[in-house]
Structures are given as C-alpha cells and as structure tokens.
Amino acid sequence: MPARLLALVLALALAPIHAARAHPLHTAVAEFRVAADGTLYLKVRAFSDDFSAAVSKATRTAVLADYRVSDDAVLRYVSNALRVEVAGRRVALALTAQRRDGDVTWLELRAVGVRSLKGAIVRNVLLMEMHADQVNIVKAQYDGRAFTTLFSRADSLKTLP
C-alpha cells in the first residue's frame, strides 16, 4: 500500500501540462473485424453515462445502478443505431459481452456467415440523438485491409470500399 499511496501523491504533482481535456468530443467507436471462418466481430466503445441514457430512452427501460443497462435493451438499441448490410441483407448481431472500464462501456457483438465487408453498407448513429456534436468512428478490418470512416449527424449510409 505505501508504494501505491506514493504513486497517488506523485499523480498530484505530475498531471500533464496539456491534458487535452478542455475540448471533450462526444464520440462512440465501432470496430468490425471479419475472421477467416466468416465470423464478424464487433466491438463498441461509448461513454457509459450517455450510452445508458440513450438505451434507456430508446427502449423505454430503466438504467440500473452505475449506468448499467440490460443486455436485451443494449442489443435492441445497438441493432437499430448501428446497421450493417452485406449483399443487401441486414446482418443480425448477437451481444456476447458487456463490460466497463471506468466511465467507458465496451460491448462485444458477433454475427456469423460474413465473409467480407467489401461493398457493405454501414450506418452508425449511436448517441446522435443525445448530442448534436456526436462524431462516431467505424473501423473495419476485412480482406487483409483496414478502413476507417467517420459519421456525424449529416451522414446517413456509407459503403465500405
């Protein structure tokens, strides 16, 4: 414990000069990865307070203690706000995990039978109903390549190259 307390005291004195917190931007990140076996993995990162409020409002369910929301409500909200279409068919996502890291909520979802995201149509409007300045990031790894695109309120659907 003494070492940890010392670290704590040092933390007081060592705060970075330019902590870059003066301009917090509202953002949610969605990372897609297509595995060789045709499984599509999706990880979503969002700030817990905003995310739980959005899920609660959209699904008319209660926010539990510490900004937690039920898996069922999360899946309903994410499936609607984060849309992926491959070859004209909407991909059905299943929620496999929901965890917290401080103020951040991480979701893990997956779908089967997705060989590639080339030409896939994506929309990410997570939390956009909460903040006019929301900017969402979609990162996609497929066919040995990585592609990143942004979504703001002015965007609708985007096609992955």
């Binding site: 005291v9 902590a19 917190r21 917090p24 700030f47 401080g102």
Partner: peptide, 14 residues
C-alpha cells in the same frame, strides 16, 4: 487524484 489519473488514461472529461 484517482479520478484525475483515470481521466488521463481513458480520456474521460467526466
């Protein structure tokens, strides 16, 4: 102090 540390590590303005 702990909140401040977590803010630096996670980017949480909250």
């Amino acid at each position: 102090a702990l909140y401040l540390r977590r803010a630096r590590e996670t980017g949480s303005s909250l």
